[in-house]
Design a protein around this nucleic acid. Structure first.
Lengths: 246, 246
DNA sequence: CCGGAGACTTGTGTATACAATTTTGTTATA
DNA sequence: TATAACAAAATTGTATACACAAGTCTCCGG
């Protein structure tokens, strides 16, 4: 039940297979969001996308609906879809959920881990290092997230993997909004560390390591700081008192 | 962050609010599946539903897509939607995921639990008992699942709650397929037991109780037995070796 | 009597058309 | 000049039409 040599067990992040057109569209937008080609808050008009993909709005809507269901988009009635801009509380909830799920999963991963899984994970870390070395930030982001998903995929539990995939994708949005420039470069070395613990079949240490890792990632975020661009203006200016000349 | 007096924190199972038409359709079908008015494997033709709800297929498709995304329906290309009929491995995965998530959540629940949460949960158990007493099997099923969701909802973690809601809904399908007539009536008394542990703020006992509870529920299922009706014949006969005469 | 080819029926996949709503731009009035 | 009312444009919501695939039935041949 855990054959996943390199794939992630569940369709969405899969790249190779011939898929239906709507799935391809979903895929493209998904990647664009997770790899941050489009910033949180960006409007995604149906017409525009329909032209871009050379299909009717029907298929675009289908893809958008799915992305919205996964929390990557916000769809407001009659106002269309925007790349989600997680609030601080939403962000905290996502990380809390990840803590809960990923830490609890580590013992199961240790239990289920086979030699080929370990090999596959090592290859992933190698790829991460490569992306890191070549300064490819977008690829690094993607691979780093994929690693966490692949880890849980070792358990062969599809619902779990699918859920974590959502959380990881949303994490990417969260980092995009609240991330500060410094401190994301060490996740790669970190992932390598975990593999040592897993190889030693040390469930408890793996769990603790994951807890610390996620805490560290969350640590680098600036939840208190100014929200980057295009915040809720009404609320913003209500909180800022006009002071001094003009 | 945990005001949910009686609601489940997340939209789908909410009943009261005025909602968009597509949401209402989703709701109706969702309830029909979870309360087992429609059996697993039942075909759900778009035309028929469109007539039933007096809308076009467009809205029906929207609702069906969402239900499929949540694993309650299976949509095969050009073959339409059917109420999902979980395989044995899918069923096991769902319960494993629940074990992982719900057990891990118990300490967090204990931490977050407030007096009003406890009150709300007690009211739920009371309602469960009432449904049990009045022999209303469908309501019992629904309330029993809702209890688990409401429990985790105490944490105020929306992604977690939404995910668990999916797992619980799928569990209902699983019980519909693999459940044996006896042994589901005690979950109500069980739930009351847990509340005692929670009230005592005993995180570990609560976790253990939940593990045992879920194990017991899974125990009542007959994964090994003949798959009720219309099994996968191809797979079935591939596994049975021709032996002896003929 | 059984099995297969082809027409027919049913139902889904996608595109397009139209209605409703929001947003933007303009003009009139205080 | 500032504000409000109104008009126009852009965009989404829903329905319908048509293309296509799958399933079914009939009829013919073996």
């Amino acid at each position: 039940m855990s054959d996943l040599g390199s794939a992630t067990l569940d369709a969405p992040p899969g790249e190779g297979a011939k898929q239906s057109r709507d799935a391809a569209i979903y895929q493209r937008i998904y990647t664009a969001i997770v790899e941050r080609h489009v910033a949180p808050g960006t409007k995604l008009p149906e017409d525009t996308l329909a032209e871009a993909f050379d299909v009717s709005r029907t298929l675009v809507r289908k893809a958008l609906a799915r992305l919205a269901h996964e929390g990557l988009l916000t769809i407001a009635p009659n106002r269309g879809a925007r790349v989600a801009r997680p609030t601080v509380s939403e962000a905290r909830e996502v990380f809390t959920a990840r803590q809960l799920l990923e830490c609890a999963a580590m013992p199961v991963v240790v239990e289920a881990l086979r030699a080929r899984d370990l090999q596959s994970l090592r290859r992933r870390v190698a790829r991460e290092r490569e992306a890191e070395r070549s300064q490819d930030a977008r690829l690094s982001i993607r691979l780093s997230g994929d690693f966490h998903v692949a880890l849980v995929a070792v358990t062969g539990n599809r619902p779990l993997v699918q859920f974590l995939r959502q959380l990881v994708a949303r994490s990417s949005l969260i980092v995009a909004v609240y991330g500060r420039s410094g401190g994301q470069a060490r996740s790669c070395r970190d992932h390598g560390e975990l593999l040592e613990l897993l190889a030693a079949r040390d469930a408890e240490a793996s769990r603790d390591w994951m807890a610390e890792h996620l805490r560290a990632v969350e640590e680098t975020l600036g939840f208190d700081e100014a929200v980057s661009h295009s915040p809720d203006l009404k609320q913003l200016f209500a909180a800022i008192e006009p002071r001094g000349a003009l």
